[in-house]
Amino acid sequence: MSSDEDNHACSCGKGLTRRQFLTSAGAGALIVTASGHLGKDQEVSAAVIKSGEGTKITLLINGKQFQMLVEPRWSLLHVLREELGFTATKEGCGRGECGACTVLIDGMPRYACMTLAVEAEGVEITTVEGLMRGEDLGPVQKAFVEHDAFQCGYCTPGQIMAVEGLLRKEPDPTVEQIRQGVSGNLCRCGAYTHIINAARRAAEMKKSGAV
């Protein structure tokens, strides 16, 4: 994207200010964890869950287990935001087209809007809240702040998760690999140049351990 697009005003109605982003990214889990028992090797049985009925599931989010009742049709995005208060993960299109809802599942970026909550049992889910190091921002978050890699900030949590996922797989990506890595994350403010710079910086920070 050309850099003059960086100057366009953001057109997404639900925009967040930078401060709000930092606050929400730092808020961490709002829900007290419950202890669960389902692990990776959960038994698969031919259970049927009726439409509209709740079933108890356990999700492993940012290293903590959460138990809750979910309906079959609920997306992971809905559960994260509306049931558990992980509101850093955003809803944009709800159709797999924008990337605002990107989370890591077993370390790989995926769209939470296209994942059913009942399908997310037994895997490790990571949201932006999970990248915090105590009260401090993680390296990718820091790099985004340093490089002004957002304007309205709405796409930012998704961009950060896409970059985090990329760096876990490819610690030293080329610019082309970074472009590829964030190609599933649209930014209506056109902050792409800064996002790519932030991703490069994040890779350096992670490598040098200077966080």
Binding site: V44, S45, A46, A47, V48, I49, K50, S51, G52, E71, P72, R73, L116, V118
Partner: peptide, 8 residues
């Protein structure tokens, strides 16, 4: 809404 079956 839909019902959901996890096939074994």
């Amino acid at each position: 809404g839909f019902s959901y079956r996890r096939a074994a």
